[in-house]
């Protein structure tokens, strides 16, 4: 079956790893993001590695006018349409504390921008009766922590949105996976203090595709983050609020 994937935030290293894995099985790829020069290089790479289609397309989570042309481009391909969402931004919490309007950008990048795009894309997927949405959230969205609660709140919103979208689209054969990565070795975490058990982007991409194949609903990647977050969620609030994790 022919498959065309919209990849939002395709410049990220996790997105690149996923695009490469999809290219290897001959998928079509619409690589969406802001840095077109960079996306064109990734598109060339995907074509060389076997993608049946790879195009760089402008997408900005803060500019909804970029959404419709992207969806229209996907609809021109027959077969199944799928989407993988990697967009998000994580300024330091201290920066947001000092400059509250930054919060809006975080929410747009990590939650409302991609959610609005998926909302617009959903009818086309329903009409075709299949396809997968891989939505990348974060373990940071499982509980608001003092060091990262702006980003965490945006991701928590996205998790809840994906959960509802999953119920809606399941009725027409479209599957939605919520992906919660722990620490991944990306530009976002490079050189940060306190990183441990860091996974490679290739490992996360492989986990995501396996989850899609097995129609899992919510995955943590690497898997042990499920247990780490189970513990973190179980800490009573009176104690949690004193912790600086």
């Amino acid at each position: 079956m022919k498959e065309t994937w919209i990849i939002l935030g395709a410049s990220s290293s996790m997105a690149r790893a996923l695009a490469r894995a999809l290219a290897g099985r001959g998928a079509g790829l619409l690589l969406a993001g802001r840095d077109l020069e960079d996306l064109r290089r990734t598109a060339a790479d995907c074509l060389a590695r076997g993608a049946s289609l790879a195009e760089a397309i402008r997408f900005d989570a803060r500019r909804p006018e970029t959404f419709a042309p992207l969806i229209a481009r996907a609809e021109r391909e027959d077969g199944m349409i799928s989407a993988a969402v990697f967009v998000g931004s994580m300024p330091e919490q201290a920066a947001v504390d000092a400059d509250p309007p930054l919060l809006e950008g975080v929410v747009q990048d990590s939650f409302t921008g991609p959610a609005r795009l998926l909302q617009m894309l959903a009818p086309a997927m329903e009409a075709r009766g299949g396809g997968t949405i891989l939505g990348v959230g974060s373990v940071a969205g499982d509980r608001g922590r003092v060091g990262n609660y702006a980003y965490g709140a945006a991701k928590a919103g996205f998790h809840t949105y994906l959960s509802g979208l999953r119920s809606r689209l399941a009725r027409s054969g479209v599957h939605v996976v919520t992906v919660k990565p722990g620490f991944v070795d990306t530009a976002m975490t490079w050189g940060l203090e306190g990183m441990f058990l860091v996974a490679s982007p290739e490992k996360v991409a492989a986990d995501m595709l396996r989850a899609a194949e097995r129609r899992r609903n919510v995955i943590y990647t690497p898997f042990f983050w499920r247990w780490i977050m189970l513990i973190i969620r179980a800490i009573p609030e009176p104690l949690f609020k004193r912790l600086s994790i």
């Binding site: 290293s13 690149r16 020069e37 960079d38 290089r41 530009a187 490079w190 050189g191």
Partner: peptide, 27 residues
């Protein structure tokens, strides 16, 4: 961001401590 780290050649007899950047885009 620069990452302060120790790294070595393949022979591991010589080591260096220094700061590394790892760009993901040409820009």
């Amino acid at each position: 961001r620069w990452k302060e780290t120790e790294y070595t050649g393949w022979g591991r007899a010589l080591r260096a401590r220094g700061r590394l950047a790892r760009p993901e885009r040409l820009s």
